[in-house]
Amino acid sequence: MLETIAFYFLAILTLGCAVRVVTTPYVFHAALYLVGSLLGIAGYFLMLDAEFLSAVQILVYVGGIVVLIIFAVMLTGEPGGRQAESSWTRTLPAFLVSGGIFAALVYLYSQTEFVRQYPVENNSGGYAQAIGEKLLSLGADGFILPFEVVSVLLVAAMVGAIIVAKKEGGK
C-alpha cells in the first residue's frame, strides 16, 4: 500500500516536472523543473532496490549536470528571459509523433511476456559490492574494458569541452 502511494507520488513528481520542462517559456524554470524530474527518477531507483544508483543519480545529475545547465542558461542570455514560442504547426506534429511513440511502446509492453530469469548468482555482500566487483573483473562477464573506455571518453570529453569553450586565441 505504502509502495503504491510512493509510486504514484513519484509518478506525479517525475512526469509533471518533465512536462513543465518542455512547456515552460522560461529557460531557468525549465532547469529547476528538471531537478524535480531527476529527483523523481532517483526515488524510483530507490524503490527498485538500486540505492547506489539513486545516490549516483543525485550526485552526478542534480549536483553536476544541472549545475552545468544552469551555467549555460546564465551564459546564453538573461536568466529571466522568455524563449521563443513554438507555433501550433510545430507543436501538433510533435504531439502526434510523441503520442504515437508512447502508444506504440505501451502496446508493445502489453504484448510482451516478461519472464523472470532465476538468479544465477547471489550477492550476499550487497549489490554495491557486486557492482564494484563486476566493473573491475577481467572474466567473461566482467566490465573492465567498457569501464576503461568510458574513463577515456570522459577525459576526452572534458578536454574537448575546454578546447571548444575557451577564448579564441586564448592564452
Binding site: L15, A18, V19, Q83, V97, I101
Partner: peptide, 29 residues
Amino acid sequence: IISAALFSIGIFGLLTRRNAVVVLMSIEL
C-alpha cells in the same frame, strides 16, 4: 509505462523547443 511516458515527453521537447539548452534538457529526460 512511466519510463515510456518520460521518453515521449523528452521527444516532444526535442521537437518543439527552439532554445538549444532546453533541447539538451529534453535529451537528459
